[in-house]
Design a binder for these strands. Sequence first.
DNA 1: TGTACATCAGTGAACGCGCGTTCACTGATGTAC
DNA 2: TGTACATCAGTGAACGCGCGTTCACTGATGTAC
Lengths: 218, 218
Amino acid sequence: MAREHIAAQGVDGLTLAGVARRLGVSPPALYRYFDGRQGLIRAVYDDLTADLVNTIELAVQRQDPDDVAAQIHAATRAVLTWTLDNAAGFSLLMGAHYPAIAEAEDGIPRVISESLGDLFGEFFVHFARSGQLNYPEDDEIPPALIPQLKIYRESVKPGVPLGVAYMMIYCWRQIYGILCMATHKHLSFAFDDPQPLYETMIVDLLSHLGVKPSANLR
Amino acid sequence: MAREHIAAQGVDGLTLAGVARRLGVSPPALYRYFDGRQGLIRAVYDDLTADLVNTIELAVQRQDPDDVAAQIHAATRAVLTWTLDNAAGFSLLMGAHYPAIAEAEDGIPRVISESLGDLFGEFFVHFARSGQLNYPEDDEIPPALIPQLKIYRESVKPGVPLGVAYMMIYCWRQIYGILCMATHKHLSFAFDDPQPLYETMIVDLLSHLGVKPSANLR
DNA sequence: TGTACATCAGTGAACGCGCGTTCACTGATGTAC
DNA sequence: TGTACATCAGTGAACGCGCGTTCACTGATGTAC
C-alpha cells in the first residue's frame, strides 16, 4: 500500500495529506499510526528495504541450489527489475532522497549496504573460496583506496580479503550506474529500456568473477 | 549567482521566494527577468549546462595539445569535480531532477548528451582513427542493444561506427555510476571521498580505450 | 539649463493553494459485571 | 441478557507556514525639447 502510493506519487508526494487522501481518510487519522510525516517516511523506508531484500531472496530461491551462477545473475537482475518497478523507492533507499532520510533518522546510513552487502557478499565469498574469482592482492590495490575499502568491507562482509571487497565495489558501481540511468532517464531517449544494457553488463561482470552465465536462469 | 544559490539550497530550494530572498528583493521583482518559476529553472538549467561544458573545455585546454591521453583524462576528471562542486546542478542536468524539467520544457531531453557527447566523442573518434581503440564489430554487439545504440549515436556523434558508440556508453555508464554514488552518498560512510575510486576507474577505462595515462596531466 | 514626460525596476498587499500539526470531539466497538 | 463504562479509530475545524502569482502602485532614471 505504501509502496503503491510512493510508486504513483514519488517521494515528494509522500505527504500525510497525500497518503490520507489515497486511503480515504483525514490526515490527522494517520497520527494514530505514524509519528508525523517523518515517521511515515521512516515506516515506508523500512517496508521498502524489507521488500527489496525479500524480492532478491525469492529470485535466488527460484534457481537451482547448486547453480550459483544463475543465483547471482538472478539476484542482480532482481535488483534492476525492483528498481524499475519502484523507482521512487530506489530513490529513497539509495538514490536522491537518501541523504535527507539518512540525516533525519538514526541508524539509516548502512542499512542498505549491510542488507545487500550480506546478500551479494555470500556469492563473492563463494567464488573466492572456489578459486574462480580473480581478485587483486592488497599491494595491487591503489593505496588511496585501501582505507576506504576497509571501512566498506566492515559494513558489507567483514573478514573477507580486501581484494574481494574491491571486486564488490567494482561491480556495484557499475550496476549502480545503470540503475541510476534507468531512474533518472537522462538517456532514455535512446535507452528507454535499460534491460539490454544491463544484461550486457552483467555478462561482462560475471566473467570478471570467473563465472559463465548459466543456461538455466529462471 | 544562480549557481551559488542552487548549491546552497538544492533544486527544491530553487524557488522564486528563495532566490528573491537571497538577492534582497521581493519575489514579484523576479517576474521582470524570468517567466515565473518554470522560467527561472530553465534559465538556471541553461546556465549550468554552459558552465559544465565550459569547465570541461578549460580543463582540456590546460593540457598539452598533442597529449590526447591527458586531455580525455582531464575532461573526465573535470566532470567529477564539477559534479562534486555542483551536486544540485548535476541533479538538474542529468540526475534526479532531470525527468521533471525534461517533461516541462521543450528541447531539454538531449541537450546534455549532445553537449557532452560531442565533446567526448571527439576523443573516441581520435582513438578509433589512430587504431588504438578496440571496439566491437557490429555482429559482436548484443542484437537487443543495436537499435538503441543507433539512436544514441545520432545524438552523440553521428556517423561513428556502432562499436564506438558502444564504447562510449560503456564508459559513460561507469562514470555515471560514480557520479551518482558521490551525489547520493549512500556509500559515503566508506567512500566519503570519491576521488580514489574515480581515478582507479579512469585508469581502467583508459586502458579499454588503448590509452596509457599521461604523465603530464595538469 | 530647465522642464515635461516616458520608461522601467522594484514594491507591498492580496489571493488561493497544499502542507503539517493540534485539539476537542464523536461514535462505534469491545468489555465487565 | 442487559446495562454501564472504557477504549479507540477517526473527524472537522483551526492554525501557521511558505509558496507562486496578480495587481495597482511608486519612485528613480533616462530622454526630448
